[in-house]
Design a protein around this nucleic acid. Structure first.
Lengths: 219, 219, 219, 219
DNA sequence: TTCTAATCGAGACGGTACGTCCCGTCTTGCC
DNA sequence: GGCAAGACGGGACGTACCGTCTCGATTAGAA
């Protein structure tokens, strides 16, 4: 070994890993149980069975702690196999997403952090650079494949695509919190595919369309 | 005068309305600023410029206070004019909803309460019986009209319809919090109409065929 | 009736006397029960069975109210019959004073107000101009009689005399709050007479010699 | 090391002494400023510059706190040197007592607590077992010495002696709150000695004495 | 194995908010 | 206009935590 970076100073103790992981687990549980707003370092330490010192020696504040742990968890990218059709890809994606959103911890933590992000720029930035970006990439990928296949004409906005595909699922599972049967999930995939297809053209045709005229008058 | 309802006992004082509304306004602002988790009665009273007594004289706890005020605000029903087409109706609805979600207070409070609802059954029940029910009724109405017009075959699940129509908008404005141009909103309406149409048929056919085949049918 | 002084203005209501005296009685009881420090107008009104308004219409503050009522009670002068001897006069005085100090209300209120007077100049002034002055006058009277009789040489300080005569009784009944038998009271009178007699002479001799030397003379 | 007394449990924090003494000082000042009745824990903590927690960690209530601190202060016994004569002993005692009563804090607090004792059995008991007992012991001591010297015949009630000696001084300095010159203090000692001497005999002779007959008629 | 410096728990510290109670002021409506 | 009832802002109660900070005990790498 030639280079030994970050060797602890002579006679030094080192942060114990078992303590670290106990804190991380406790943080996620605490976050799910009471939310970011009510989250307290003390409760995390208590749940982890460690002293408060052990937490503050690792992270300077609850924000810092949450950001690091959450970005680790949320940054994992999904494998997106090519099923040969847009609808198939969408169903796969929705299935993965549904599985994630049905996880008790995630389904509690995610909406909470997302709503907290509206108040906290740092949380917003972190989620943006992990979760949102992650989704955007998936959107670009799926649209690209579908366009190549000829299922979609070019020019679909990836952000809008994410809205149309992920929005309904998120609303259903994370917000309305009603059950979603497998049959309905497939329906959702079908509908999402149709929506994406419809979201290509109308940019040009709609403004000229009669029905929308009545609408425009409404403030 | 024959009936004299609820006259206060002789020489009794009465809750002052200006104080009541000051508290309500302060509650909404405080709720937007710090969220339900960190909401404190004391801060509400301070912001309203009243004593804590005045708050506790009206509501027994912060939960009770939030439930009443929020259900008042969230319970307002939207007028849903008939534009003559499903797409037109959807655009009207999205326009109204977007206006509501763009209101600074609402856009902060709603996601917060909805995520809190995952932990608090009373909040969940209240939001269910106001907001969710409200949306469900709109879904039934729009689907009914479209079915009469022949735009949709019968059998669309109203809950799924709400997911498909409102989900994308909510995700965009309240969660991802990115801008939504008028053009994109119209696109969203178009896509939602297509999604609803697609969500009619496959109930029967899809289960019988592999996902990828069904997809092809969607134009 | 020919003259009617202080007739209220036409069509005016007048402070009801029963309410006034109920308040006064309640004040004394409250004062004995909780002391001046904890005395509250609200409690007085409650005990009197009247509204707070009725109290504040008569006195502007608890201080004002206490001052008026207390000065009325404390200002009553004692009859001081001449028994023909200093010791007899003193016993009469102590007997009267003991009777007053044994009254439950007075024995609670007096020490309380006297200690409060150390903090409140207005109370101090009021008590000075009633109670203390009253005692001083009695001191002057008794000393005068005794001097005329030849029982005391001239030059006894009346203030010191009050200390020597009233001090022991007050300490015993109002502070130490132990019983005082009739036998002891008579002893106290005897001792007070002797003390007064002793308080005449040394004024001249003592100052001229150091304390420790003077002490030896007292046999 | 064989015995290790009262070592705190491993890694435990310990009450800080500087905080304790700051609270004690603040309590005495607050007690002098507003009295026991109006004393508030919050004000004590504020004056001491500490949190309420620090107070409640040491004493359970304001009563408990006052009792402990006051009994500490009031329990200090005076040195009572033998001057060789009763009058000298009395002057020494009065001089010590006057010094104590002239201390701003003591002169405010003592009458206040003594009058509060009339309402609060616990305060009464505490003062009884410290202050009163202390004085009683001094009374016994002085009387004993004087009796041995032959200055007093036996049979003087110590309680009465305390009344006669301390009563005048207390009334003068703590209640009437007028100045007391050194000359007057010496006079007081002389008078007290005479009073004690007079308080020996009359137990037998007085009841038969004519002057007291007139007095007995007065209720 | 000994030394020793960093990590560990426990908990005292100054704060803040809780929900309750009470106060003095002020308003209202009956008499 | 006197009177009660009571809503108002305010303040203290005693409790419960919080984040910070200070300890003695523990521990594990370096000598």
């Amino acid at each position: 070994v030639t280079i030994e970076a970050k060797r602890p100073p002579a006679g030094a103790a080192v942060l114990r890993e078992d303590v670290t992981s106990a804190i991380q687990m406790a943080l996620l549980q605490e976050l799910a149980a009471v939310g970011y707003g009510r989250l307290s370092i003390e409760a995390v330490a208590r749940r982890a069975g460690v002293g408060k010192t052990a937490v503050y020696r690792r992270w300077g504040s609850k924000l810092e702690m949450v950001l690091e742990i959450v970005s680790t968890v949320a940054g994992q990218s999904l494998p997106m196999p090519d099923t040969g059709s847009l609808r198939g890809d969408l169903e796969i994606f929705l299935r993965f997403a549904a599985k994630a959103l049905r996880h008790p911890l995630a389904s509690q933590i995610m909406p909470d952090l997302l709503s907290e992000a509206a108040r906290n720029p740092q949380i917003a930035a972190t989620l943006q650079s992990t979760l949102i970006t992650n989704q955007h990439d998936i959107g670009v990928l799926l649209i690209g494949r579908a366009t190549e296949r000829g299922e979609l004409s070019s020019g679909v906005d990836p952000a809008l695509a994410v809205d149309l595909v992920f929005g309904p699922l998120y609303w259903r599972l994370a917000i309305a919190r009603t059950t979603l049967s497998d049959k309905h999930l497939r329906l959702m995939a079908t509908a999402a595919a149709a929506a994406l297809a419809a979201a290509c053209e109308p940019t040009a045709s709609v403004p000229a369309m009669p029905p929308s005229q009545a609408i425009d008058k409404i403030g």
